[in-house]
């Protein structure tokens, strides 16, 4: 039962990035920098498939 917590750590990092991007997105929206808002939104959307991928990998290795 040797388990790697690398994928867990990566997922936590993604959660952190999500939080940062979301906060940035909302603030840039109200500062009327709409290009930055869209950039942050795209980052948030891309992070989801990345997280899913990491999850899949992590499950396969360890179970």
């Amino acid at each position: 039962m040797k388990r790697s917590y690398v994928s867990v750590a990566l997922l936590l990092a993604i959660l952190m990035l999500n939080i940062i991007a979301t906060q940035y997105m909302v603030h840039q929206y109200f500062y009327e920098n709409y290009t930055n808002t869209i950039g942050a939104a795209i980052i948030n959307v891309i992070l989801f498939p990345a997280a899913f991928f990491i999850y899949k990998k992590g499950v396969k290795i360890n179970d």
């Binding site: 867990v8 999500n18 979301t22 899913f52």
Partner: peptide
């Protein structure tokens, strides 16, 4: 965690 990422993604739209 993946679910949370999904929620973030959807709420960014």
């Amino acid at each position: 965690l993946v679910g949370a990422a999904g929620v973030f993604a959807v709420s960014s739209l």
